[in-house]
Amino acid sequence: MIPSLFTLLAFQLVGEITVRALRLPLPGPVLGMVLLAVALGLRGGPPEPLGRIARGLLDHLSLLFIPAGVGIIAHLSRVADEWLAITVTILASTAVTLVVSAATLSWLMRRLAPQEE
């Protein structure tokens, strides 16, 4: 449990420091994720306790977004004024983005990687 917890925090820390040192336009934890994935590749897989703690965190990923979501309380009047335009924009843009992403990926997978299933 402790070595796994340390691994996650240490990779996040290294990610945060590197992103700032090199002024990279991505969040530290995302770089930490990439570095840990590379490390797992070199090691040939995650140790069992790390897999368990990752599962535990990812099973409840939704919980972790709640505090930021409650921040809507500070913007209630702006959201009340523009709720229709905001809702339409988010709905339409998200729907288009979903279809374009899925369509591009499945079309290219069929053309470029026909050996996939």
Binding site: L5, L8, L9, F11, Q12, G15, P27, G28, P29, V30, G32, M33, V34, L35, L36, A37, A39, L40, G41, G45, P46, L50, G51, I53, A54, R55, L57, L58, L61, L63, L64, F65, I66, P67, A68, T104, L105, L108, M109, L112, A113, Q115, E116
Partner: peptide
């Protein structure tokens, strides 16, 4: 709770590693 977003993002490396083989094959379409 908010703080745990960071370690949870790092933890995404584990399922990602599980898809490494597919990822190597699909890097261009992706």
């Amino acid at each position: 709770v908010h703080f745990l977003l960071g370690p949870a993002t790092v933890a995404l490396a584990i399922p990602l590693y599980g898809q490494a083989e597919r990822l190597r094959r699909l890097w261009l379409p992706i």
